[in-house]
């Protein structure tokens, strides 16, 4: 069960909840699970977010594995210059 933390203002769409315990093997399934637990998040998640797993940022890879004790953060979609 990985702990998934939302960025500050995102929790507004999850009725104030900041953290979720989610059992999912990879990023894609974790986002799907999160979207069904807090349906108002779904449109944002579908538009694209950045996922941090143990400090490394993933913008794309839906199949990146999540270990049960991984630290997972949902962050806004990011871009560089």
């Amino acid at each position: 069960m990985a702990k998934v933390v939302l960025w500050g203002s995102l929790s507004r769409l999850a009725d104030g909840r900041k953290e979720f315990d989610i059992d999912a093997p990879d990023i894609g399934r974790m986002l799907a699970a999160l979207g069904s637990e807090a349906p108002k998040l779904k449109p944002i998640l579908d538009k694209g977010v950045t996922v941090s797993i143990d400090g490394t940022l993933y913008r794309l890879d839906r199949f990146k594995t999540i270990d049960p004790d991984s630290e997972v953060f949902i962050l806004p979609k990011m871009a560089g210059g």
Binding site: V5, W7, D54, F73, L75
Partner: peptide
């Protein structure tokens, strides 16, 4: 812990 949340590697 970074100010934006995650722990730095």
């Amino acid at each position: 812990r970074s100010s934006y949340g995650p722990t730095y590697s």
